[in-house]
């Protein structure tokens, strides 16, 4: 695990995501207030913060599940400016979402499709891969998350941890440049958390660009290159895991578990 410091390495590293003065409101309430952030390629950034601080909203603004009100996002080579009333074409969205995929807290697998069916759905119908090619791809990534034996099993017959591993395979099968994780272990029974974390740790070790919202402080400290502490829609502290977890401003939030 290379715990690189983004401030010193920034000069050599390409930036995968830049967020500039991002604002998102829900009914007059600014859920994100002027958020700016840079994520270098091949690094892991964890977003921590208390419930309702806007972590999910920030993540969802990156793949445009939420449309920000103003600011700018550059992600996977695409630049999106908000607040100028511009429409975003479906083809741009489709390209963005093939390059930036997401793993959800509630897994959100499609119950009428088998594990393999879930994994190859988007490669088949968004990337329009052939059946055989998609199947190979799907099996490859199910293998990677240790779920190849369950390829024909439907989500109801899988444990939470297994469902989340299939969901990770689904996100990997698009061969994205960036992976977004929104509290991937929060809906899991405690004994199932580690199997999912170990898959995520392997991905971090591969040098994938990942953004991870999590309440697992130990894990965040261990895998992250950068930690961002979000408080009521504002980035309160950002930096290396050590610097953030030792910062007095997030002591009250992070210290009991860290």
């Amino acid at each position: 695990m290379t715990a690189t410091n983004p401030t010193t390495d920034a000069a050599h590293q390409k930036i995968a995501i830049t967020v500039d003065h991002l604002v998102k409101c829900f009914a007059e309430i600014e859920v994100l207030q002027d958020v700016s952030l840079a994520v270098p390629e091949g690094t892991v950034t964890s977003i921590i913060g208390s419930s309702g601080s806007g972590k999910s909203t920030l993540l969802r603004c990156l793949n445009l599940l939420e449309r920000p009100d103003s600011g700018e996002v550059c992600i996977a080579g695409e630049r999106f400016q908000f607040g100028n009333g511009q429409r975003i074409a479906h083809s741009d969205l489709e390209r963005l979402r093939s390059r930036v995929t997401m793993v959800f807290q509630q897994f959100n697998l499609w119950p009428h499709l088998s594990a393999l069916g879930n994994v190859i759905e988007a490669p088949r119908h968004v990337k329009r891969l052939g059946r055989r090619q998609a199947r190979q791809l799907g099996e490859h990534y199910l293998e990677k998350v240790g779920m190849i034996d369950k390829r024909d099993t439907y989500p109801v017959a899988l444990s939470g941890g297994q469902q989340q591993r299939v969901a990770i395979a689904r996100a990997l099968a698009m061969e994205p440049e960036i992976l977004l994780f929104d509290e991937p272990t929060s809906a899991l029974d405690p004994e199932l958390v580690s199997e999912v974390l170990s898959v995520i740790r392997d991905l971090a070790d591969e040098g994938r660009t990942m953004l991870l919202v999590t309440h697992e402080m130990h894990f965040a400290r261990e895998v992250s290159d950068q930690v961002v502490y979000l408080d009521t829609g504002r980035i309160e502290v950002a930096g290396t895991p050590e610097s953030v977890f030792n910062d007095p401003r997030c002591q009250k939030f992070a210290s009991p578990t860290a």
Partner: peptide, 27 residues
């Protein structure tokens, strides 16, 4: 049909039409 399932469809780049006939209607 849980909103999350349809949202996952959006998050993976399926078009509104694909979400309708591949995910929403079958469910």
């Amino acid at each position: 049909v849980p909103a999350g399932e349809l949202e996952a469809g959006r998050a993976f780049g399926l078009s509104p039409w694909q979400i309708l006939y591949r995910l929403w209607l079958p469910r």
